[in-house]
């Protein structure tokens, strides 16, 4: 009932995960995920905090009129919605192009070696 893969130890050895982890192929996958997701996460959290700080401490700037009764505060607030939608779309495109094929390749190789794992999935 633990989260570990339930491989039957009698008939199949578990994959050597240490070896997979240190392979160049996996290193590329990890880098493709981290170099995209980590800076982007930092970026949107900072952009959100800037917005929160402006709301708290830059009332005059936020009140500047842009069009009719719509002011900078609304433009930036709606901007948070737009950037959230865009980042979600951008990440999904990146994942489909750069992460999924690499992950799929490693997975199918490991599971082809270990039929029991696939049956368990």
């Amino acid at each position: 009932m633990s989260a570990a893969p339930t491989i039957d130890p009698g008939t199949h050895e578990p994959p050597d995960y240490l070896q997979v982890q240190s392979s160049a192929e996996f290193d590329e996958l990890r880098r493709a995920h981290r170099s995209f997701a980590f800076p982007l996460t930092l970026g949107f959290i900072l952009w959100y905090l800037v917005y929160v700080l402006l709301s708290s401490y830059a009332g005059g700037f936020m009140a500047t009129k842009v069009a009719g009764r719509v002011n900078v505060a609304f433009v930036l607030g709606l901007g948070q919605f737009v950037t959230t939608f865009l980042i979600a779309w951008w990440y999904s495109r990146h994942a489909a192009a750069r992460l999924d094929p690499k992950a799929e390749a490693i997975k199918s190789r490991l599971e082809a070696d270990k039929p029991r794992l696939e049956a368990d999935a």
Binding site: I7, P14, Y17, Q21, L29, I106, K107
Partner: peptide
């Protein structure tokens, strides 16, 4: 536990052996 981390990292990024 380096071995366990290798297992978690490989599985979490590739979906190997996912339930």
């Amino acid at each position: 536990d380096a071995k366990k981390y290798a297992e978690l990292e490989v599985r979490s990024l590739t979906g190997t052996g996912a339930h």
